[in-house]
Structure formats: structure tokens, C-alpha cells
Design a protein around this nucleic acid. Sequence first.
DNA 1: CTCTCGTGAGAGAGCGCTCTCTCATCACCC
DNA 2: GGGTGATGAGAGAGCGCTCTCTCACGAGAG
Lengths: 331, 331
Amino acid sequence: MRRPTLEAVAARAGVSRATASRVVNGQTTVAPHIRDAVLRAIDELGYVPNSAARSLVTQRTDSVALVVSEPGTRVFSEDPLFSTAIRSALVELEAINKQVVLMLASSPKSHARVERYISGGHVDGVMLLSMHGADPLPSALSRLRVPVVSYGRPAVPVDIPFVDNDNVGGAEAGVRHLVETGRRRIATIAGPQDMIAGQDRLAGYRNVLRDSDRRSIVAVGDFTRESGAIAMRQLLGDDPALDAVFVANDLMAVGALQSLRQAGRRVPDDVAVVGFDDIEAAKYTEPPLTTLRHPMAEQAAAMVRLLLNLFEGGPTDPIILPTELVVRESA
Amino acid sequence: MRRPTLEAVAARAGVSRATASRVVNGQTTVAPHIRDAVLRAIDELGYVPNSAARSLVTQRTDSVALVVSEPGTRVFSEDPLFSTAIRSALVELEAINKQVVLMLASSPKSHARVERYISGGHVDGVMLLSMHGADPLPSALSRLRVPVVSYGRPAVPVDIPFVDNDNVGGAEAGVRHLVETGRRRIATIAGPQDMIAGQDRLAGYRNVLRDSDRRSIVAVGDFTRESGAIAMRQLLGDDPALDAVFVANDLMAVGALQSLRQAGRRVPDDVAVVGFDDIEAAKYTEPPLTTLRHPMAEQAAAMVRLLLNLFEGGPTDPIILPTELVVRESA
DNA sequence: CTCTCGTGAGAGAGCGCTCTCTCATCACCC
DNA sequence: GGGTGATGAGAGAGCGCTCTCTCACGAGAG
């Protein structure tokens, strides 16, 4: 009991396969009464085109790969960045009838898998959610002559269109807020330095401290809550008198708040805290977190548009989305 | 400049296309020296099989659809349930070389899209992350004669293999813990009653209250933090003397904790709180949350195995995974 | 009334692969 | 030495579709 073919539809409608194909593909060179007959046959038979056959001849697949290159299970599952970006990209792509193949590229083995798959012509394009600098994927894929776009600026200089948020400017705004509210000893919990977001947000912090003649106090985390808690303890050891901390993402800020609480510090009275990303959880910390809104969904949507432009020859200049300071109670 | 075909490989290796195909597909009936010649040709040409051509003849696609049926943007992005389950399923499927097509089925329009796609034979099977009872998808897909499995028991009685966690037993264990620690007025913030998880966890709560001769105090949320906060305020209005609350998921518990704080209630001194799921964030609330561990990743992995069994004729009985009480400081 | 041109429909090749069928070859045994 | 069977390799059909090429037909022009 196999699915009806175009042949069957054509036979039922009393036309040739070519004509049936014309109707299916919406060509206008078909007389109305014939078109109706074909459509009726399609309906009656429950015909659905075989995509393998179609893409065999058209050389298109109408699907794109979304490659997520994040080794850490915890980060992937816990950081709303990924789910938000994936969901937004999905919605955008479904709107233009493209399928999304989701792939993980965490180990060298899976890298090979991804490369093989992509070069197998299964997809018309690739969207890369790759955060790590050492990641060989951006350059590998750009060599494959497949349209590739990136969510976030690739850490290695490679000619791939990308969309990023203004990490440096956002960090500057956050730290400037601390300076302007009279904080003197402003520490930071930086993100991983093999990620652009980690590097740029630290750069922003340094820029403002330099200009405002303050000493930088740095601990490094890996964007997880736990690393934020550990880094905060370390900072309190390094400089017990610190009165503010700029944390490179909200997840780490959550951990930092816990460490501050355990150390008996009041927030914001003793120590002001500014996060980054404005995830939903930031509204529910004690106290609610002052942070920088990172437009993750918009970023993903813009990435999809960039990929489309790559297909259709539109502009593919990098896009940098602005961030916005959201002042709550922690600073 | 198109990709090399099997024909080209065969020509270069000096064999027929059929023999080259045998080598590619790992058949053993090829003499070693010929196999080597073919492999060398493949390597030199950088040959990658054309999957469209292959699945056109084999009628297989080596890919499965992962259909996420969750209308709420916020829930999808914020609840680690989705990202954890998706990631785990992805890892399991990549291990057996299956591709994953991720699809959203939130609106009636996208339902039609999904159905059309599935019935188009693009995928060998479907995994359903559908939580809502009114969801027409499970029955629609089961009619399509495509292998389907479900993450979570489908809300409508439909003959689909599924994996779930022990919602009732978990809720009972959580509430029993509250009873055993001497709480008298135990309220609950239930999940949406059109979801099995919402229904079953409420049922578990009711079971224990009934047996321990306590009155039930119920508010209903929708599994978001915000709804938890609202429900908690409502409960405090309904019964200011309540001394415990069982919250149907951790996200809502986070919101509830905030409302309790704002109402000046100390946790656990005045009000004990038990959540459900044991998400990472549960360790970072103030105070850390006592909750029930819901093995989301294992559940997804088991679902993948179930789908495999469906392909290969193994057992496809429903699987119920146990939950475990994790006692922290909130109760 | 013939010629040209536009329009709508059919014929048929071919996308790249798998797989059955067929055949050649060789070892083995009586 | 001829028959038998196992083994390895090739020929070729065909998966379901698109798309070019061709052609039939009718309208309009000369």
C-alpha cells in the first residue's frame, strides 16, 4: 500500500504527468478546468509529493541545518540562549517553508559527522550557533561552498555573514551604570575567553574602568551558574572590599548572588550586581537583577534573513543588534 | 562543478557502479583489492552519496521528526524540559546516525504543516513532545501509519508508545514529605489541567491529602514562573495560615518563592515549599528548593529506544521512569 | 486562404542511486 | 573430465519527479 505518485494523479485527472506537475508547482500555464481536475485528483488520492524524487532533480532540499556547537550539556539545557535562538529561527524558517535539521557538534567525531552531512548536499544552507573560538567548524564549513551564516561573530576571522549583539557596548553601559551610581571597586566575572561574548564583554568592562580610573578585578567563569558562584567566592577572597560586580551573563549572576548571600553581603547595599542577557530568571532572583537585554530572538530572526539573502543575493553585511540596560534592584 | 557521483567513482576505480555501491554500503561480497580501489577513488574524488537518490530507491530517509507541540514561547525557552529532552534525543539519535528534523506545532496552521510533512514521507518516524490534552496531533499522526512515539503519556487515549515519569508517585512522595515533617495546611500550585503532568501531579497531591485527612487548597498555574507567583499570592489570600505548598514544577516554585518573600513569609520556617523536576535552578533559589527529580534526559533517551524498537520490532510497552525526592532547604 | 505566432499540453530524458537478475569464473568432488 | 555449487562482478531496470523539447491548435495578420 504505497503512497500515490504523480503518475496516479495524472491518470485520474486524465492528463499527463507533466501537466500534473505543473499544477503541483503552481505554474500558470494550465487551463483552469484542467487545473481543477488535477487538484481534485490530488485531493481524492491524498497525494503528497515525494521530496526525495523532487530534490533529486531540482538539487534543492528546502531544508537548512542548524548546527549547535556547544560541548557543555548544562549550558545547552540551562541557558535560555539556545532554546530562544532555536525557537526563533524555527519560527522564521517555518514561515518560509524550510525544514530545519538540528545537529550537535560537540566532539571532533560529531564535527566530522556534521561536515559529512553538510557536504552530502542534504541541506541548502547552514546556520551556526558556535560560540567557541577553537571551533574549527566555521572555517571548515565556509570551505564547503555551502551558504553559511553564524549566530554570533565567529571567533576566527572567516568570511561568514553573522548577526551579533553589541557585547562591548552593552558591557560598557552596564559598568558605566555602576560607576555612575558611585561604586568604587568594581569587579567582573568574565565569560570564557575562548568565546567572543566572553572576550567582548570583558573588553567593555575594561574600557570603562580604564576611563574612570578604577582598578580591574577579574575572575573568569564558563557561563554556568556554578562557575558564577565559584568566581564570586574567589573575588570576595581577592578583594573583600569590592562594592560591585559586573557579571558577563545572568546565569553566572544567579550563582554570584548565591555566593554573596552565603558570604553575608547584602545586594545592592554592600555589593551591586549587574548581569547580562536579561533572561526571564533575572526577574525572579533575590533581589531582581539589573542586567542588559540581549535580543536573542531578534538575533536569530536576523540570522535567518541573512541566510535568505545569501540564497537570493541580498545584502549580507554583518548585523550588530543593540543591547539595553534594564535597571531592577540589584544595582 | 557538481559533486562526483557513484558513476565517477566506479569509472575511476575501474569497476561497475553496482560494485562501487556495494563498497559504499559495506557489503562483504567484494574482493579486498577491488574494495580498496573503490575506497581510494572515493577518497580522491571526495565522494559523498546523494541522499535524495538513495532514499528515492530505498524508501528510507534515515531521519526522524521531533515535533514540539508547545504554544507558549516562554515555556519553550525557559523550561529546561524542552532543551534537555531535545538535546538528549539528539545525542541518542546521532549515535545511530539518524538525522533530526525539529518542528514546532503550535498553531492549527503549523499542525497542518507538520502533518503534510510527515505524510510526505520525509522521515522514518516521529517523536512527539506534546503536552496538551486538546492536542489533535497524536491521533492525527497515529492515523498516518508512521511510527510515532511520545515523550509523556498522550492526553487522549491513543495507541502510541510513550515514556513518562511517575508524576503521580512523585507528587505523592513530595506531599508525603510535607505531611511527615508536620505540616498541617498544605496547599498546591497545580499545573495546567489540560496536561497530563498537570493532572497527574495534582492527583498525587490529592491522594496523600485524602489519606492524611487534610483539606486540599488548590491554585492552578501554567508552569511559568509568573503563574507560580500569581498562584502563590492567591493561595495566601485564600488561606493566610497555610504552612506548606507543593508546586507542580520548579519554575512555578521559583515564582512562588518570590511571592512568599514579598508577603514576608520565611521559607521553610513559615511555609515549606516542594517543587517538581529538579531543574538546575532549584539549587540556586533562596532557599534552595526541595523537589522531585524528573529524569528528563533519560526519558528522552528511552523514547528514542522505543522508536528504534518500533522500527525493528522490539518491545514497545509504555515506560514509566521513577522520580526521586531531593531534599534541600525549602522543605 | 495561407502563414505566423502564441498558448497549452504531452513525450521523454535524466537526476543518482539500489538491487535483482544474470553471468563468468573457479574450486571441488565423484 | 564433466558436473555442481559457491562466489564475485556487471547489466539494467526503476524509484518519482522536473523540465526541456516538441507539437497541436486556434487566432490574427497579410
